[in-house]
């Protein structure tokens, strides 16, 4: 029983990381209508930025987090401006190929600068493990902080979208760029803002991921990026609560499959679940089916 709870908590923690990354995927998809396959690599850059800030520059943890977020925000905005914006009217396949190109570019640049040798990432979480149930259950500080951070981020984003003008503008742009323009919404500015938020979240996701799994390489972001994409699709791409639910389900499933079935098959199981869910509900768990009157 205790081991089950422990696997579950680890799953929740991993799922929270997926969710934080998936939020960026889903927001960018919802607003710019593109899959930013370089999103996972932004996370990796965030990891390196945080690593340098903390270990090489000796900055305090909160400042290092901030540095990493700023670096990723600037990177995200720049990628959007340079690589994606010129393709705003191109077909989605060109955009997708460009995104994959950006992904490899970031990985190769990281390899050039940091080499492929893994860096051992020291945890950003200074909380001691918590012992529960008379010492039978140990919950790491990383687990607690990751789950907590994820919940705060989701709640914050939902509030931002529903309660602020900028959030409403995002919803308007995601539905109809032309109509949003007529309302006075700066569509390009809104897309930039979306990339900025998504990339800042990727930085947080990267730090939390590397704190729990402390090896940092140029491909650190690749697999979590794909998993987060799966989580976003599973939850219903474009939906913020969907990204949260999708991420959590994915993380828990992956950890339980690893523990009880086979650690080799866990990814296969996770992807099978995706396929089954999409067969039953092609828009994902919380995917919107917009009713439109003509």
């Amino acid at each position: 029983m205790m081991s089950f709870i422990s696997y579950l908590l680890n799953g929740l923690s991993l799922g929270s990381v997926y969710a934080i990354i998936a939020l960026g995927y889903t927001m960018v998809y919802g607003i710019a209508k593109m899959l930013n396959f370089a999103h996972g690599d932004i996370l990796m850059v965030g990891g390196y930025a945080a690593f340098i800030a903390l270990n090489s520059l000796g900055l305090p943890v909160p400042v290092s987090v901030l540095v990493s977020m700023v670096v990723c925000t600037l990177l995200g905005i720049t990628i959007e401006k340079v690589a994606y914006k010129p393709l705003r009217k191109a077909n989605s396949l060109s955009v997708l190929i460009t995104a994959i190109g950006v992904s490899y570019l970031l990985q190769n640049l990281a390899q050039l600068i940091f080499t492929a040798n893994p860096k051992s990432f020291s945890s950003f979480v200074g909380i001691e493990p918590i012992k529960l149930a008379g010492g039978q259950l140990t919950v790491s500080g990383e687990t607690v902080v990751t789950i907590f951070t994820c919940v705060i981020i989701v709640a914050g984003l939902v509030t931002f979208i529903n309660k602020t003008k900028a959030g409403q503008a995002m919803l308007a742009v995601s539905e109809d760029k032309g109509a949003a323009t007529l309302m006075g919404v700066d569509v390009n500015g809104t897309i930039s803002l979306t990339f900025a938020i998504g990339s800042a979240l990727a930085a947080i996701g990267g730090i939390l991921l590397c704190s729990a799994y402390p090896t940092l390489t140029p491909t650190t972001g690749a697999m979590p990026g794909i998993k987060a994409f799966v989580a976003a699709v599973l939850g219903g791409i474009g939906s913020i609560p969907g990204a949260f639910i999708g991420g959590i389900i994915l993380g828990v499933l992956e950890n339980l499959a690893k523990a009880y079935i086979s650690s080799k098959l866990s990814d296969a199981i996770v992807f099978s679940v995706l396929i089954i869910v999409l067969l039953v509900k092609p828009t994902g768990i919380l995917g919107k089916k917009i009713m439109e009157k003509v």
Binding site: A169, L171, M183, G184, M291
Partner: peptide, 18 residues
Amino acid sequence: RVFATLSVYQNLMLGAYT
């Protein structure tokens, strides 16, 4: 071209966006 997934009120408030 109303914003289909938003409420009537939210649509109106977007009209006053600027």
